[in-house]
Amino acid sequence: MTSRLLMRLQVVVPPPQRLGAVPHGTRVIAPITSGTFEGPRLRGKVLAGGADWTLLRPDGVLELDLRLTLESDDGALIYMTSFGLRHGPPEVLAALARGESVDPSRYYFRAAPRFETSAPQYAFLNRLIAISSGDRRASGPIYTIEEIL
C-alpha cells in the first residue's frame, strides 16, 4: 500500500460531554474549538463548531466519528469527516484517560478521513482515499493523514 503525506492536523478539544451509556455503548462527544493543519499542498486552521462523536463499544473499541470544517490559508472551506477506531492495552488507555502523554505506537488509533470542497485548487481532496494515524495528547489529538496512492 503506497501513500504520501497529505497533512498533519492538530485540534484543540475542551472538556468532553459525557453522555454515558446509550444503546450502542458509552457516548462521549468531544467538541472541537480550534486547530491547525499543514501539508505539502494545503495549510490553514480548523474552525470552531466541529466535534468527534465517540462511542465506546462493549468490546472495548472506541469508535470515532469526526466532523469538522477546515479553512485554508487562502480562504477555502473544506468539510472533513472521519470514521476510525482506537483501542489498546488497558493500562495505556487508562493513562490516556488521565491525560498523560503516551507513545502512540502503544495503541491503535486509525481512521479514514473524507473531504468535500468546492474550491478548484483543492478539488483533489474530493477524489482521494486517506488514512490517518492519531496521537492523543492532553490538549487534543494530532492526526497524521496520508493519501492512499
Partner: peptide
C-alpha cells in the same frame, strides 16, 4: 485508474473478532 475503498467488517466469532478492530484499505 484510481479505485480505492475503505472496507469495514463485523464478526461475532472470537476467531474473527480482529476484523472488528482494524482499519483497512482496498485496491
Amino acid at each position: 485508474y484510481y479505485f480505492r475503498t475503505v472496507p469495514r467488517f463485523e464478526a461475532s466469532t472470537e476467531k474473527y473478532a480482529f476484523l472488528n478492530r482494524i482499519v483497512t484499505v482496498g485496491v
